[in-house]
Every structure is written in C-alpha cells, then in structure tokens.
C-alpha cells in the first residue's frame, strides 16, 4: 500500500519579519512549524534569536511536538572582497541580515538537514513505515 504524505512549505520573505521584535519573530516561526509546516525564511536570525528559538522550542516540547530541525544556508561567500564584505555588513546593520535562507521544520517530519555547497537534503521519515527518503 502506498502512503502519501502532504508536506507544506511556507515561504517567509524578509519584509514579513523585519519589523517584528525577536519574540514575535520566534513566535511566528514556531507557530508555523508546530502546524507541521516547513518554513523557508529569507535571511537569518541573529545568534541570540537562534538560541532563544531553541529555548522556546524546548519549552513547547510535548508528546506530540518533538522539536525542530534548523539549518541556515549562507549565500554570501566567505571569500568576497573587502569592500563587498564591508558593504554587505553595512546593509545588514541597516536592513537586518537578509542574506541566505533559514530552513526550519518539525522534527517529527524532518529527521535531518544536510548541507552541501550546492544542495540541501531534507531527510524525512514516514512514521508508518520508518523508511527514509530524501528530497
């Protein structure tokens, strides 16, 4: 018997979160993940916000919500030139860190996120069969 599972990918553009304070940003992300959506957010959270997201996630863990899988994909190259790096840092200070993407998914659906330079692998697990598949 073939088991079909619907996965919902929710894209959150940076302008949707740039005016939110840290707590509201985190609540928005967690709310979507708890609704079994895989969030693809433009940009990234600050380090402190990432820690707060983990802390909040721990507070929410229950028999049904097992936590999150989280990964940040940087699109700005580390080997960018000096002036380009300064320019990008100034843009970050003024507009927030909109470089790259953040992927957050519910741990009961996303077992692991693997990153290669040019691809991202989401390892999912079907609860019915326990088999793994890559997307």
């Amino acid at each position: 018997m073939v088991t079909r599972t619907m996965l919902t990918l929710q894209f959150i553009p940076y302008f949707e979160i740039e005016r939110l304070d840290s707590q509201k940003r985190i609540s928005k992300l967690l709310k979507a993940v708890k609704a079994n959506k895989i969030v693809l957010m433009e940009g990234r959270l600050k380090s402190e916000e990432e820690a707060e997201l983990i802390r909040k996630t721990m507070e929410e863990i229950s028999n049904t919500f097992k936590g999150i899988e989280l990964s940040v994909v940087n699109t700005s190259g580390a080997d960018e030139g000096f002036f380009k790096t300064i320019k990008s840092k100034m843009v970050n200070v003024l507009l927030g860190d909109r470089h790259g993407f953040t992927i957050i998914g519910p741990a009961k659906i996303i077992k692991e996120i693997k990153q290669d330079p040019d691809k991202i692998q989401l390892l999912t697990e079907e609860s019915s069969s326990g088999s793994r598949r890559r997307r």
Binding site: I54, I61, G67, I68, L70, A107
Partner: peptide, 28 residues
Amino acid sequence: IATKIDYEDFMKVGMKEKEAKERAKEAT
C-alpha cells in the same frame, strides 16, 4: 544543547515509556 528531544528515542534504547518521558522532560 539540542533542537529536538523525542522520548521515543529513549524507549528505543530500552527505557520504559514513563522513564523515557521523564528523561525527555528533564532533558528539555
């Protein structure tokens, strides 16, 4: 520090459900 804690993972290594849930709660 982890982003996920599943009590069922503890059951897979031989813990009883109650003990596994307690460990998961303490771990969070």
